[in-house]
Nucleic acid binder design. Structure first.
Lengths: 334, 334
DNA sequence: TTGTATGCGTTATCAA
DNA sequence: TTGATAACGCATACAA
């Protein structure tokens, strides 16, 4: 790896001059400029980003802490953040926290140690206090999919509660009353907010929710399948289901099909997120469109602005999620 | 951000001693050790990874160049590589190339400038020559999903041709002869190898392939849907389809359903990759199981070993992809 | 057992 | 317009 010194020597100039032509910072005689560039080409010179960062005390990077890279929700999140990052001529560094407090913390520490100032963090398992500590230390850290009141202007989230309420209301309007809620088994904010939306809508309709209508499972396809089995066994009276996310809905529907039930004839189903999968299930899944791309865009822009010391006008950081009606909701059977 | 100097001052020792307790490199008197650790805690000291990397001329990082973070294939790839990385106590840095030569090159350059020696790179658009140049410069770079003969012991790939041949043979065994191939419109190796497999199997069965049985579309859901329309319009005689990947198969099936056709009664379909989606389509998609996780694991381990200067025994870098029969293949209609 | 001094590859401040 | 040179934060050979 050639260094700036090698280039300087070969071009017969000082390292300072080389630095100047690289950064285009001061006028350099066109002739020497050309000499330097030639030397760089010949040596296949490449700047060492670490040294640059060290010397200039700034790094051109946006850090992203995400959950599970293989989950479509996070895949979309990462992609959107990356687009913004690139638009601003920066590079993205992704680390994944795996829904595990220690790994989330390690990931955060890694990003810090890399010198990222701008960061978008999706943390499910770190508690508010810890996050608050990091937030104090990192003025350009923005939270996504989570709200901490003291960090409200640096939190970007979706109104989970209202969204699920609307789903349930839609089912009720279709004539359903026995509506189950298939949710996650993790103590994450998303879960409690969505569950709250479910309860609110049910209560508003004067429907009492027996305990077994709320089914807790890992938020994966497998979890959805397991939930399907429980549903069939434990609450045959149920005619409709709202799920924590589309992936669970996919598992649930696969299980129902397998057991000889039909969607939406026997069961109506509404998902959450509207990841691509939703449109390609059969029947096409009615679900809540989670504006992941918008949120991610916003979060990334916010982080970048904060990193540039721009003091932002109070922006709206709360997004609405609208119901997308496709083919999995019908009037209740029987 | 506190530095090693601040800690040294506070603990009343030299920076060297602080470095020693951090790295546990030389014996340090337990008492002073404790003093140093106390100072670090109090100052919330965090090592600057860039400085470490610069000073120790090594960095504890594995770089991954990937295609499109939002594609389930790459999502799984990234996840697997990350697992290996973490197992080895390193951190992963992901950059995405977006199936675009310039961005792939920028990504590669970024990883280099960050000082990653170990790298797993999935490049679709860079030509062999360029990749070869990088390979010469980077002894611990391993290619995934691509073969370059001169880099064979650092390439990890799947036998695309054989896998698709088997798919087609399976369809033929079921009685199909009018089999279309829905493939990508990009000039990538995957595509030509899989297409070759299709032609080989068809030729072996003495089936002549009219030009319009090969449909080129972007390898996305949308591409699959568009392919479905073309299929119905242009070649009504076709009774079975092999697709470039599951995502295209999903789009294709959605389109067929929409148009009133049934899978597998009217059309048999076989995908490629066996991403999670495949199991949750309806009917469940018969597809080729691409051992992405195994390949990724292997590639990451390889890269890490090479970075450690381990000269590996000639390992088998070619993986087999087996057909997984689920519910989308039946005897031809009529 | 601990401290001093030097270097890693750049940037940036002074001088010249 | 260009060249020395001192940082940047840390590791490490060499001394003590």
């Amino acid at each position: 790896m050639a260094t700036i010194k090698d280039v300087a020597k070969r071009a017969g100039v000082s390292t300072a001059t080389v630095s100047r032509v690289i950064n285009n910072s001061t006028y350099v005689e066109p002739v020497t400029q050309e000499r330097v560039q030639k030397a760089m080409r010949e040596l296949n010179y490449q700047r060492d980003a670490r040294a640059v960062a060290l010397a200039s005390r700034s790094n051109n990077t946006l850090g992203l802490l995400t959950g599970n890279l293989a989950d479509p929700f996070f895949a979309l999140l990462a992609k959107s953040v990356e687009q913004v990052t690139r638009k601003h001529g920066r590079q993205l560094v992704v680390v994944s926290g795996g829904h595990n407090a220690q790994r989330e913390q390690e990931g955060l520490n890694f990003l810090i140690s890399q010198g990222c100032e701008a960061m978008v963090v999706h943390s499910t398992m770190l508690d508010d206090r810890t996050l608050l500590r990091y937030g104090a230390q990192l003025p350009a850290m923005v939270l996504i999919n989570r709200t901490i009141p003291q960090l409200a202007n640096r939190s970007v989230w979706v109104d989970n509660c209202a969204a699920v309420s609307r789903s349930v209301e839609h089912l009720i309007a279709e004539g359903h009353r026995k509506i189950a809620c298939v949710t996650s088994d993790l103590p994450i904010a998303d879960r409690s907010e969505r569950l709250e939306g479910y309860y609110q809508a049910m209560t508003a309709a004067n429907i009492k929710v027996p305990q077994n209508w709320v089914i807790n499972q890992p938020f994966s396809e497998e979890g959805g399948e397991a939930a399907g089995k429980l549903l069939i066994q434990q609450c045959p009276e149920v005619t409709a289901v709202v799920t924590f996310n589309d992936v669970m809905a996919a598992g649930l529907m696969a299980c129902l099909h397998e057991q000889g039930y039909r969607v939406p004839d026997d069961y109506s189903v509404i998902g959450f997120d509207d990841v691509l999968l939703a449109r390609y299930l059969y029947p096409r899944l009615s679900t809540v469109h989670n504006p992941i791309d918008l949120m991610s865009h916003h979060a990334a822009e916010l982080a970048l602005q904060l990193a540039d010391g721009i003091n932002l006008a109070q922006s709206t950081n709360c997004f609405e999620a609208q119901l997308v009606c496709r083919q999995t909701v019908a009037a209740p059977r029987g």
